[in-house]
């Protein structure tokens, strides 16, 4: 299994919206390389014919009836907002598109 480069860490940090500093990139790249080296052993089973387990319990079909439950009040909904305006969450300008 190949190791992880500083550039890859920078790319992953962008995907994960983490504005890492240069020294962090260096630091994490080394550590992540070690960790990935250690966890890569799971891929020993990659070719084995074993079904994956995504849920620890074999539950299926857990659903709720289509019945309205009380919502929060707008005041409660907005109570943690860093900024608000017109009963809406005020956020910095959004780049890109919908």
């Amino acid at each position: 299994m190949p190791g992880i480069t500083r550039e890859e860490v920078a790319h992953l940090a962008r995907l994960a919206r983490l504005e890492l500093k240069d020294e962090e990139l260096d630091h994490f790249a080394g550590q992540l390389d070690d960790i990935i080296g250690a966890v890569a052993r799971v891929s020993d089973v990659a070719d084995e014919d074993v079904p994956p387990t995504s849920h620890p319990l074999p539950l299926t079909n857990v659903m709720r009836p289509d019945e309205v439950r009380p919502s929060l009040t707008p005041q409660e909904a907005l109570s943690g907002a860093p900024a608000q305006e017109q009963q809406r969450f005020k956020v910095p300008q959004i780049l890109g598109e919908d």
Binding site: E8, F28, L32, V42, P51
Partner: peptide, 29 residues
């Protein structure tokens, strides 16, 4: 941050099967 980056890596296309997928198989074992 370490774990978020590690997890982002493990779920990335191209790595998913080797990492996340295999880990789920280990879980079955």
């Amino acid at each position: 941050k370490r774990r978020v980056i590690l997890g982002t890596y493990a779920l990335s296309s191209g790595y998913y099967d080797a990492y996340y997928g295999s880990a789920q198989k280990v879980r079955t074992l």
